[in-house]
């Protein structure tokens, strides 16, 4: 290559680089402007302002000082509420695990008996996912009365939606070769599901169920806010009575419970995966 043509090539390369860069800048600027406009408008709508934060700091401080120190003697009273919280989460998750087996099979393209069943199941599961446990809990408290039973049902329904959709997607992504091998032996549809599909999805099913238990424990701590049992009930009750030191204890216990559950569930999950 001659020196001249080399120089031309280099300057062409530089020009090209600049062109690409400018085009990228323009694109980024446009998207950035749109994002800022949306965020600014949203901030305006929710009355978000740094001033409000600043002005809120003294109130926040005041509230925190009223919380401190936590009334540790109240912990002994919270024992049964803590146990109830765990029990709600365990049964909510267990019911969800049981329910999600048929729903995940019906909601996966490769195991559903009919495409209409598939779509109906997915819509139903999306509805369960979209509605927060707390909303279910509110409705169930009206339907079956105050108490942990409403909480169990609420957690069970929401967790079924989450779990079944996750498992359905796992079922859809199983290794096709293993399935084909079993079909080729003359196995029936159900036998292929039992011996080909289930062994493949079991690890992720178990792993996600453990994760769901962790999430359910977290949710169960607040179900009491609407009267569906557990620690949240003590939290809201003590607040209504202005016993803030006891409220602080509730928050502390919830924090510890979630931390421990996170730790145990994390360990269990690493064991199965």
């Amino acid at each position: 290559m001659t020196a001249v043509s080399f120089e031309t090539a280099v300057s062409a390369g530089l020009a090209r680089e600049a062109q690409v860069r400018h085009r990228r800048y323009i694109k980024q600027a446009v998207w950035g402007a749109i994002a800022i406009a949306v965020l600014w408008y949203a901030a305006h709508q929710i009355k978000f302002s740094p001033y409000a934060v600043a002005a809120g700091v003294p109130f926040m401080w005041d509230f925190l000082t009223r919380l401190f120190p936590p009334d540790l003697s109240y912990m002994s009273v919270l024992g049964s509420a803590t146990i109830e919280t765990i029990q709600i989460a365990i049964w909510g998750t267990l019911l969800a695990i049981i329910l999600s087996i048929p729903f995940s099979l019906l909601g996966a393209r490769n195991t559903t008996p009919h495409i209409i069943v598939f779509h109906a199941t997915r819509v139903f599961l999306n509805a369960l996912r979209a509605i927060n446990e707390l909303v279910f809990a509110l409705i169930f408290v009206s339907a079956v009365g105050l108490g942990p039973f409403a909480g169990v049902l609420a957690i069970a329904l929401h967790a079924t939606g989450m779990l079944a959709k996750f498992v359905a997607e796992e079922i859809e992504s199983v290794d096709k070769g293993q399935i084909e091998a079993q079909l080729s032996t003359g196995a029936s549809r159900m036998q292929v599901i039992l011996f080909g599909v289930i062994p493949q999805v079991i690890p992720s099913f178990v792993g996600y169920s453990i994760y769901r238990l962790d999430v359910s424990i977290r949710s169960a701590t607040v179900l009491g806010l609407v009267g569906a049992g557990g620690l949240g009930f003590s939290l809201i009750q003590t607040m209504k009575l202005f016993k803030y030191h006891q409220t602080a204890t509730c928050i502390l216990v919830i924090f510890l419970l979630v931390l421990v559950s996170d730790w145990i569930c994390g360990k269990l999950r690493r064991k199965v995966i």
């Binding site: 293993q178 080729s184 032996t185 080909g196 062994p199 493949q200």
Partner: peptide, 18 residues
Amino acid sequence: VRRDFGMVFQQFNLVRRL
């Protein structure tokens, strides 16, 4: 019919976890 034809695949296609 399928029962009468055994099949062997390139990728073995054993169910790995069983």
